[in-house]
Design a protein around this nucleic acid. Structure first.
Length: 963
DNA sequence: ACCGCCGGGTGCC
DNA sequence: ACCGCCGGGTGCC
């Protein structure tokens, strides 16, 4: 039944596919898959004055000018056409009068229109009140809706409704807007202004946030000025009872100036926000400082100190954290069983005894298990029996109860004194916060896991024992008691969403704080991951992100929803009040968006200044392009492939089926790009993807396509989990997913499962995976006889020259093709370079090891890192390198920038040199041109229609293939 | 609801 | 009186 809509979505997905990075793809999918029609493109069909009846039966109240929700109530026993009227918090106000409800039910049930209501008068009436209804929807449904309403005796007014007694209405309401625009009071922004406004949304947010706060003494790294400011801001956001944006106190009531909603209770304050500092400004350090500095009631996190420094903390933490999964079952269970959530001690001093008695038991068990893991001296062995533990707990209790507790060592006297006062205070506090929450949960992409572990080691005083648990790996300890007794639990988005719905311990805990690192990765609200993230229980929530808005306002909703910014965490209110007005260029909407963002975000860029001085002084960065000429035989091969590809694509052009055959177009371009790097990158078998006649042939073709995708090792991500693909499988419609992901999709979709990308029907037994033998066979084939290529020569020339100039220089060699990295290993070895390699296939453990090895300054440390573009995307700290060689251009220049920023960031001491290799007269050159053109295009095409963006894609392909 | 609607009581002026 | 009119009971969907 969907064809028109799904065809449209398919086009949209695939066209994005090629020319922007994968984040955009997933976004396109999310837009296409979203159940409710996109609010952005809605037009106002007209308005109608209706009546809300039955007020006396419900408790929900509304104010003059307040927006109300209209909810179909098909199960109503009196009228299946019933339409319920609710206020912003979802309390029912009444019903729409019967006849009108019947008409509305028709258009609402057919999703021909979305109806929104605003109440301007009669809010104190006892029985009924008027409501202004606005009908919104897609342009193409306008007539159908208007006619359907007229048939039932309701005429949609398109000129704006005269509202008796509504002279000072809120101007954000659709009705008022219509009136205002008629009078010419509101002018819409031009596409360009709008674009600028979005770009600047996160700029200049430093306003009145310039207090400073010193970190707790358990933080060993001195904070830079801007980090102290961030810490101060974050503490304030966690502790202060400031009203959320748009809320104000009016007499006894709390009033939201945007929706005109008011409530007796104080709206749930948003404790947390978005730290959107540029990469490299130390978001991780600031967050660690926050964890240690701002525990309950603004006191530092009480931590145990180790007196003897006999064992290097590094080793102990490392083993504690990383080895946990292996030896954890016994240690974890033991700890889980006895380590009562520490915070509950405060309210109950009898319980405090329990932990004192129990703790040695923990020590014993943990001790045993860790010894058995053979990791030498462990955290638990250092844990002194009884007395220090008692001290810790007393101190902890003291911290909870607000007595001064600046050091981890406290005299018993102090804590005893805290005893009596605590019972009084706790009874007051308890209602507000769950003081037993101790743990901060950090969720991050796999690629930055090790960075977090490193940073905890690096920035926490060596003698402070911080319980950091890495919730990762199949042996992870799923005990809720154990987890909630930690100071910090770190996990990945994938683990979180894998656990979700599967009696996830992470969702059963009330966290003190949840931190989403690289928070912009969660943006598709329909993805399992997003649901998993939204479902977490926490007192305080933070989003860390270098790029909070990547493409549109739409992304912001996820962030707002995570922060529970009432009432915008409900999609309807977000769409009505923020997203639609903003995307349609209403100044008011944009202003509101700006205000909203401003209230919850701290963002500084590398170029921001504090007190007239730049935040950070980064060494200079020089980027140059080195043109590579192909050798005669390479050129001949290239031209051959190009002509072949041109024929294929011209045929599609002529047929007008380019976008339908995108997989093949992609394949052609991929092959050409591979030619530019090295001939061995090309898949070996049949290069012609003709029409498959037999099932065997089809399978062969699919494997071939899969091979292409995998060989790129680059920008492929699974559009279900939005992470890199594990256990890749290809569908008959030639889309690649993780096997577990697509299997889940197939099993959840009732009746017939459809491909998330193109909505073709898919079946489990039709999924094709890459034959295992072939992977091995190819690997061995590659190493048999090695040959060079022009690009390899160009790189080696540079490397050899550099080594002569200064043998301490370290380089990143970046390619999108992991196979190219394979190829490069041979000449590097030949010339005696010491190198490491980092790509998506590396396990977490190995990854951390590789980075540490590369970053170390030892004389025999590796000087070169082979880095796959994708793996180098976010979070990594590779400041040991000062030279970056980008072996092949990426579709999205931002990806390249991100990669360069791995080394051009805080902590870089040398000037950074970036060399981009581009093959002359090739698809690569055209890609660079398009990269540049795309920048302009984005500006011009902002707000343009899908159709002309599609045309520009086709134009791009023409340009790439020089057609 | 200071309405509309229903249905019973009532019936010249 | 198979009506009109009056006034009480009543009331979302």
């Amino acid at each position: 039944m969907f064809p028109p809509r799904w065809r449209f979505s398919w086009d949209r997905c695939t066209e994005v596919d090629l020319f922007t990075d994968r984040h955009t793809l997933s976004q396109a999918i999310s837009a296409a898959a979203a159940e409710e029609p996109d609010a952005d493109g809605s037009v106002l069909y007209g308005q109608l004055k209706g009546t809300v009846v039955g007020l006396k039966y419900y408790t929900g109240v509304v104010n003059k000018g307040e927006m109300v929700g209209l909810v179909r109530e098909p199960q109503n026993p009196y009228d299946s056409n019933a339409v319920k009227v609710t206020n912003i918090y979802g309390s029912q106000v009444g019903h729409i009068k019967r006849q009108l409800a019947a008409a509305m039910a028709y258009v609402m049930d057919k999703t021909l229109a979305k109806v929104e209501g605003v109440v301007y008068s009669g809010t104190n009436n006892a029985f009924s009140m008027p409501v202004i209804l606005s009908f919104w929807g897609k342009e193409e449904n306008k007539n159908a809706v208007t006619e359907a309403m007229v048939r039932r005796g309701f005429k949609l007014d398109t000129g704006g409704i005269k509202l008796a007694g509504a002279n000072q209405t809120s101007s954000n309401s659709p009705g008022a807007w219509t009136m205002a625009s008629k009078k010419g009071l509101t002018t819409r922004l031009t596409a360009n202004e709008l674009k600028n406004a979005f770009d600047n949304l996160f700029e200049g947010l430093m306003e009145s946030k310039d207090g400073e706060k010193e970190a707790a003494e358990s933080v060993s790294t001195p904070l830079l000025l801007h980090q102290k400011q961030a810490l101060s801001w974050m503490c304030a956001r966690e502790n202060k009872c400031a009203l959320p944006p748009f809320w104000e106190k009016r007499g006894e009531l709390y009033y939201n100036s945007l929706t005109c909603f008011s409530a007796k209770e104080i709206p749930e304050r948003v404790r947390g926000g978005i730290l959107a500092d540029d990469m490299g400004l130390g978001k991780t350090l600031t967050t660690i400082a926050l964890i240690l500095t701002n525990f309950q009631k603004g006191k530092p996190l009480p931590v145990e100190k180790c007196e003897e420094q006999s064992s290097p903390r590094k080793a102990s933490t490392k083993s504690q954290m990383v080895s946990k999964p292996e030896g954890s079952s016994s240690a974890g269970d033991g700890a889980g069983g006895s380590d009562t959530a520490a915070g509950s001690l405060c309210a109950d001093s009898a319980k405090m005894e329990v932990i004192c008695v129990d703790t040695p038991d923990v020590v014993e068990k943990a001790d045993k298990s860790e010894k058995s893991a053979g990791k030498g001296k462990m955290k638990a062995t250092k844990r002194k029996p009884k007395a220090p533990v008692l001290l810790e707990d007393l101190d902890f209790a003291a911290a909870l109860c607000g007595s001064s507790s600046d050091t981890a060592f406290k005299k018993k006297k102090t804590t005893v004194k805290a005893g009596p006062s605590q019972s009084v205070e706790s009874s007051i506090i308890e209602s507000a916060d769950d003081l037993s929450a101790r743990t901060t949960l950090i969720i991050c992409p796999l690629s930055v896991l090790s960075n977090w572990l490193d940073q905890f080691e690096q920035h926490v005083q060596a003698d402070v024992k911080l319980n950091v648990y890495l919730y990762y790996g199949s042996e992870r300890n799923r005990s809720k008691k154990f987890l909630s007794s930690q100071d910090v639990v770190i996990t990945t988005y994938n683990v979180l969403s894998a656990d979700f719905g599967n009696k996830s311990p992470l969702h059963g805990i009330s966290w003190l704080r949840v931190v989403l690192d690289e928070g912009h990765v969660v943006r598709n609200p329909n993805a399992q991951m997003s649901k998993a993230v939204l479902d977490l229980k926490a007192q305080r929530r933070w989003i860390l992100s270098g790029t909070p808005i990547q493409n549109s306002v739409k992304d912001l909703w996820m962030l707002v929803a995570f922060l529970r910014l009432k009432p915008f965490d409900a999609r309807e209110w977000w769409n009505r009040v923020i997203q639609r007005p903003a995307t349609q260029g209403e100044r008011e909407g944009l202003q509101n968006l700006q205000t909203l963002v401003k209230c919850i975000t701290l963002r500084r860029t590398k170029s921001s200044e504090v007190n007239g001085r730049p935040l950070v002084c980064l060494p200079e960065k020089t980027v140059c392009v080195e043109q590579v000429e192909l050798s005669q035989p390479e050129r001949e091969e290239y031209e051959l492939a190009r002509n072949e590809g041109r024929n294929t694509i011209s045929r599609y052009m002529a047929e007008g089926t380019v976008l339908r055959n995108y997989a093949d177009v992609l394949a052609v371009l991929m092959r050409l790009r591979q030619h530019c790097c090295h001939p061995d990158l090309l898949a070996k078998t049949s290069s012609d993807l003709g029409v498959a006649a037999t099932p065997a042939e089809l399978r062969e073709h699919l494997i071939e396509k899969l091979r292409l995708v995998l060989a790129s090792g680059s920008d492929e991500e699974c559009s279900v989990c939005l992470d890199s693909i594990h256990l890749p499988v290809i569908t008959h419609c030639a889309h690649v997913f993780c096997r577990p992901c697509i299997a889940k999709v197939i099993s959840t979709e009732e009746e017939t499962a459809r491909c998330p990308l193109c909505r073709t029907e898919i079946k489990t037994n039709e999924l094709v995976e890459f034959p295992q033998e072939e992977i091995e066979e190819e690997n061995s084939a590659n190493s048999v006889k090695w040959r060079t290529s022009s690009k390899v020569q160009a790189l080696m020339g540079n490397l050899l020259r550099l080594r002569c100039e200064d043998s301490s220089i370290k380089c990143l060699i970046v390619s999108q093709f992991t196979r190219f990295l394979n190829v490069l290993e041979t000449p590097l070895r030949e010339h005696g370079f010491s190198f490491v390699r980092l790509d998506g296939t590396l396990s977490q453990k190995k990854r951390a090891q590789v980075i540490q090895e590369f970053q170390s300054s030892g004389a025999d440390s590796p000087t070169i890192m082979l880095l796959s573009l994708k793996a180098g995307g976010v979070g990594l700290n590779l400041t040991a390198a000062s030279h970056v060689f980008l072996m092949d251009p990426a579709w999205n220049p931002a990806t390249e920038e991100q990669c360069i920023d791995r080394c051009h960031r805080l902590g870089q001491k040398r000037n950074v040199f970036v060399t981009k290799f581009i093959v002359k007269d090739s698809v690569e050159e055209n890609m660079v041109k398009i990269q540049r053109k795309k920048q302009d295009l984005v500006e011009k095409a902002f707000g343009s229609t899908n159709t002309n963006r599609k045309t520009s894609r086709i134009d791009d392909i023409k340009a790439l293939m020089e057609l």
